[in-house]
Design a protein around this nucleic acid. Structure first.
Lengths: 332, 332
DNA sequence: CTGAAAGCGCTTACAG
DNA sequence: CTGAAAGCGCTTACAG
């Protein structure tokens, strides 16, 4: 491939018959030039199709206009969140480097340390669990979406607590008394929180949980959880970690001859589009992943600018959707 | 947030009592130093927790070790492909910048032109359609995954042609004679190709297509396509653009009282996990998105290194999976 | 094996 | 309003 070297600011300056300082000034604020000069520079820039070398600019300004989003590599690529995060960043004038790291939380935090010192990014958002300790003395701000939950917990307010309680209460109001929970990967604060709140709600409402299956966010784990259940366990309602898991739960139930929702009610999480069109359509929690991605980036930007943390999106971005997979408890 | 300035190579040099040239040398090839010197530098690097400033290094070497992946912003974030692409890039020592661009293909190509000249990346992969013209005189190599199909077409070999033909033939072998296609967004070469091959196959095999619905890859478009069908159209087999669309197709069919697959067979594309666990489970094409992402990056790397294009993954990474959503045509 | 010097392409005080 | 100079933090010939 034939590769042309991009024009430099000096070449533009020469063609325009001015100093490169003036060209740089033109780039920053064209209005500050005398009209005649501006036109000459304008012409030279157009002619040479000049675009400033961003690496050189970064070097000089110590600003890269670049953020990194670090996540675990693997099949769980959080597309919607990432899309919103990158878009929010772009809108604020930042490019986003998506860094997927193989290995566990250790590998991720090591990578983050490197990134922080590389001078290549102005801030880092970690959306998979990391084991980072101190947030002091960092070269650049680091926001961890997963510790968000933990922080809220520290404040005595569990993230997503409301929704889990609402789910259990809703199912109880339909007459259900015997519950089962298929949990997500317990490395994730969100999975741990949902499980904890599920157990608390069951206890507080005087209901019965016949157990918790520690799954991994996959449909197969939902399927396996139900397949492993004793035939006479008496469960009538399942709270699944997410819609994909719920899909596995529903499938396994049907294969055991349990009708959903007549024999078993199933609640999902995420409002996946396929769950909406499935039969039965899945009751679920509509999670505003876009808002999550946006909020995370906004928090990061605030730290970068040394501004107070923006208030997170109003409570209630997560809303319950009741569909065909849940119904009245079967008559005993 | 307290921010510490990272140590520079000069500070390391001073602490070690050597020139910064020597420190740089240590970074490139520690073995080239005299053991005594090496130890001194090693100590200083550790003490100051020094990591070279990547921006400065890039500036000097004119290498950024960075690729950009440009795609349309929106809900269709191709997670699996991106995950594999970024991983392949990382393995080759490249960071990946994911650039989602709002607007159409015009906006995307403008963004790509900018990126190419910015000096910030060594290569660009476009995975959404762009309107780029000449590939000559580019500053950096650009690979467009969507023109891949077009190129193949140019070679007289249509991408994914085999699979579409196989689907139609399979359905015909089950006795189906009246077909319907819900196409994907026609901006995508893959959607255009599938549609074209569908029509060709129908024609060649002497079958009947009662029409093509130009959808947009969404479940809703699949739903609408079926809902709009005349009750006596006689269709017994639907080829859907992908599994999400197929899910909408199945749902709408059921709501019209058409049993799937007894009255209507539905074929999807993508082997989405939820489609596997749905009832009926979806017949589909298992697409190796990981291989696609990997191959695209490998092609880009080859161009960067001025090597011959690697041969794409063997044919047959796309394989048909027959599940419950397809069955024998209903008796007339 | 090591150091002094030049330079990558910009921006930003500082003069004029 | 414009230009000459310094410098961002590195790497790489070139000497020694």
């Amino acid at each position: 491939m034939e590769q042309k070297r991009p024009a430099t600011i000096h070449q533009v300056a020469r063609l325009a018959g001015v100093s490169h300082t003036t060209v740089s000034r033109y780039l920053q604020d064209a209005e500050s030039l005398k009209p005649k000069t501006r036109i000459k520079v304008e012409f030279a820039v157009k002619t040479l199709d000049y675009r400033p070398n961003l690496v050189a600019r970064s070097m000089r300004t110590r600003r890269t206009n670049r953020l990194a989003i670090v996540l675990a590599s693997g099949p769980h690529f959080p597309g919607r969140l990432l899309a919103a995060a990158t878009e929010t960043a772009h809108r604020a004038g930042y490019q986003v480097e998506v860094v997927s790291v193989e290995g566990g939380s250790r590998a991720r935090s090591a990578r983050i340390e490197d990134l922080a010192r590389s001078g290549a990014v102005e801030g880092i958002l970690a959306i998979s669990p990391t084991g980072l300790k101190s947030r002091k003395l960092r070269q650049v701000p680091i926001v961890e979406s997963e510790t968000y939950d933990d922080k809220l917990r520290g404040l005595g307010e569990l993230a997503e607590a409301t929704e889990v309680v609402e789910i259990v209460e809703y199912l109880a109001s339909l007459g259900h008394r015997s519950f089962f929970h298929v949990a997500g990967d317990q490395d994730f604060a969100s999975a741990r929180n949902r499980k904890a709140v599920y157990l608390e709600a069951i206890e507080r409402l005087g209901l019965r949980s016949i157990g918790v299956y520690d799954g991994d966010w996959t449909a197969q784990s939902g399927y396996d959880a139900i397949a492993a259940l004793a035939g006479d366990c008496g469960v009538t309602a399942v709270v699944a970690a997410n819609d994909v898991v719920a899909m596995g739960v529903v499938r396994a139930a049907r294969e055991r001859g349990w009708s959903v929702p007549d024999d078993l009610s199933v609640f999902g999480w995420d409002d996946e589009v396929m769950g909406k069109f499935a039969t039965p359509s899945l009751s679920t929690v509509a999670v505003d992943r876009e808002a999550q991605g946006r909020d995370a980036i906004l928090r990061l930007l605030a730290e970068i600018r040394d501004e107070p943390a923006p208030k997170a999106a109003e409570r209630g971005i997560n809303r319950l959707i009741f569909r065909e997979s849940t119904g009245p408890a079967p008559a005993v």
